[in-house]
Design a protein around this nucleic acid. Structure first.
Length: 623
RNA sequence: GGGCCCGUGGCCUAGUAUGGAUAGGGCACUUGCCUCCUAAGCAAGGCGUCCCAGGUUCAAAUCCUGGCGGGCCCGCCA
């Protein structure tokens, strides 16, 4: 693209940026490989007929391409100027580049030096992840991978709210009943228990007051409630992490709410807030004694029912908004890190995840430029409010660099998931993964009856988790997903197994081939339609990733993360490989072609493996 | 009352930021292809008022205005 833009610059006498902006890929490759619509733009400026301009430019281009071996031919169709690339030449450039970069193909250093802190999925430690939480986690994890590929340093954090009402209810129940999970996975056990507690809580005033007492006890370090909670939450988070690990999701830090309460963070934040002109304590009215942010002067909040947003209640406790502001200040290092950390557990990827704890030690998280909070889109307004308060406090840059990665919920045909009502039962992430795995296992069995159980189980697990991740990534995050088993368990067509299968096929070819070194192959032979289409797609990969990162722009509803673009790129790449696979035999081709095609297969495999790496979809070499 | 998101063949969905060539996929349906590198595949076929109405433009699924339908948000709650 860059090279084509270069010659266009000279021939159409426009600057490079303009040239690049007006380049596109034609709707049909028969029309050309690259096209420019520059004539429309110039027509407007010069008030001339665009077709005439296109003809003029193409004449100059004809001459220019004589010195550019990559471009073979220029073709004018009305106002469109279409360029045809030299297939062999492109093959040579692209495949050499992929082989040279290998596992780094697709990475760039465009954002080198930037550090991002992410928070996801922040599921209450009182239940198992359901498929909606899983969307959050998978989006967060994938965004982290994308950022890293673009050169970012990424800190992945999770938030553990171990002081909420839900926890108090469960602690109350555990202290009262002494029931035990038995064989049940701990997070599932709590999730079921939670549904039971709701009944008692809603019907019985006495239970409500007891639970309120437990709730107060949670903040007192040595209380029985706090100890029970500590054990319960630890077990639950461990159980939830087992689910995360199945999906290949790992974290660096867990921020526990109880640690925030004992860290002094809130007090520091309160002090800083009170120094700000727009944050004050009303002396009369219904919010007397609270600490409020005055949003009356801010256009987007002035129509709130009451534009005085409470950050600290009249009894001195923080509201969620107040806590969110304080945490956001911590994330950016506006408030010096007050936390102590200790290892929570060692993850299957070999890295430890640390949690905040009163008996931990200091750690240096370093400076963070950007913060990404992965949160459902229903929290768009509260998130903007937090970022607005940062601005009121004078931290404009941090406010601008605060991103709410918003996504819509996953629901069922006719209802949403609710922890309280237990509608998630049957749709927990574990259950969905189990079903996907079981079905994958059947399919693997059909195809590889003579393989070992270990092999079958391993492949089934990879296919199952891949399918679930892909399902959640392929829809644009601003779309609601209606969960249907038929979709989740459809392994044909636009689904992860298709992507994994393409690698398995490439892998088989390479395994069966005798070793051929890259230098011997004449890559210019790769000029068949299917080869050329595949090569063009491979060439686009680094740019596809960067486009997604550049597209992370703040909108009113949140920052859009186009996970679906990467998913559909992967699908397109797999499709083009399948067509190549069908129309261009590799192993049975003549020696010259075989050597060249083997290099193309390698380049494809590298690109696809790297792309699946970003999507977090496991690579399967045989299936 | 104010704000946000979504609306594209029977179902799901890309494309909307930055207007551009015949609206691209998948599922389901019909047909053909395994003596040939794995058929979780490939090839071919039918299926469309791009929610509606105006407007801007040489050009609108895309931009603007006004509607309609669905979802969500506007607490000292959590």
């Amino acid at each position: 693209m860059d090279r084509v833009a270069g010659i266009l610059t000279k021939s159409a006498s426009v600057d490079l940026v303009t040239a690049l902006e007006n380049l596109e890929i034609p709707p049909d490759s028969k029309l050309g490989d690259v096209a420019t619509t520059i004539s429309f733009r110039l027509a407007k400026e010069r008030k001339e007929n665009p077709t005439k301009i296109a003809t003029d430019i193409s004449k100059k281009l004809e001459k220019a391409i004589k010195r550019e071996p990559l471009v073979e031919r220029v073709d004018v169709k009305g106002p469109y100027i279409n360029l045809f690339l030299s297939r062999g030449h492109l093959a040579d450039i692209v495949i050499r580049e992929v082989i040279r970069s290998n596992e780094d193909y697709g990475k760039s250093d465009e954002f080198k030096g930037q550090r991002a802190l992410m928070e996801y999925p922040a599921v209450n430690p009182s239940k198992p992840w359901h498929i909606g939480h899983t969307r959050n986690a998978v989006l967060g994890d994938t965004l982290g991978n994308v950022l890293e590929a673009a050169g970012y340093d990424v800190i992945r954090t999770d938030y553990i709210n171990n002081l909420g009402l839900q926890i108090a209810q469960l602690v109350w129940k555990l202290m009262k009943d002494k029931s035990s999970p038995g064989d049940e996975k701990y997070d599932h056990y709590l999730g079921h228990l939670y549904v039971e507690v709701q009944d008692a809580f809603e019907k019985d005033q006495k239970v409500q007051s007891e639970i309120r007492a437990v709730s107060r006890g949670l903040e007192v370090l040595e209380s029985e409630a706090a100890k029970t909670s500590e054990n319960m939450v630890t077990e639950c988070v461990k159980a939830q992490n087992q689910t995360a690990y199945r999906l290949g999701i790992y974290h660096d830090y867990q921020i526990w709410e109880s640690a925030i309460a004992h860290s002094g963070l809130l007090e520091k934040a309160r002090k800083m807030m009170l120094e700000c002109e727009s944050i004050f304590t009303p002396e009369n009215g219904e919010k007397v004694g609270c600490i409020v942010a005055d949003l009356r002067t801010i256009e987007e909040f002035k129509d709130m029912k009451d534009p005085l947003k409470v950050l600290f209640r009249s009894d001195g406790t923080r509201t969620y908004t107040g806590a969110d502001v304080a945490t956001q200040m911590w994330k950016f290092g506006i408030i010096e890190d007050p936390f102590l950390y200790k290892e929570f557990e060692c993850q299957p990827n070999g890295e430890s995840v640390y949690r905040t704890a009163v008996d931990g030690s200091e750690r240096d998280l370093g400076i963070v430029n950007l913060v990404f909070n992965i949160i459902g889109s229903e929290q768009a307004q509260p998130q903007r409010l937090v970022y607005t308060v940062l601005r009121l406090l004078g931290y404009n840059e941090q406010s601008d660099n605060s991103h709410h990665i918003a996504y819509e919920f996953v629901g069922l045909e006719d209802e949403d998931f609710s922890g309280r009502e237990g509608t998630w039962i049957g749709y927990s992430c574990d259950e969905v993964l189990d079903k996907a795995e079981a079905l994958a296992r059947e399919e693997v069995d059909k195809r590889n009856p003579e393989e070992s159980d270990d092999f079958k189980n391993e492949v089934a697990a990879k296919v199952g988790t891949g399918a679930v991740r892909y399902l959640l990534l392929k829809s644009s995050p601003d779309r609601k997903i209606t969960f249907r088993w038929d979709d989740a368990l459809d392994f044909n067509g636009d689904a992860a197994p298709y992507l994994q299968y393409s690698i398995a096929r490439a892998q088989r070819i390479l395994e069966k081939a005798e070793q051929v070194s890259g230098s011997e192959a004449d890559l210019k032979l790769l000029a068949a339609e299917a080869e050329f289409a595949l090569i063009k797609a491979i060439a686009r990969f680094p740019e596809e990733i960067l486009e997604v990162v550049r597209g992370l722009k703040k909108e009113t509803w949140g920052t859009g993360f186009s996970s679906n673009k990467i998913a559909s790129y992967a699908y397109e790449l797999a499709t083009l490989f399948s067509r190549f696979y069908d129309s261009c035999p590799v192993l049975k081709a003549e020696a010259d072609f075989k050597a060249a095609r083997l290099e193309l297969v390698k380049a494809f495999r590298t690109t696809m493996v790297n792309c699946l790496g970003i999507l977090g979809i496991p690579v399967v070499e045989r299936m």
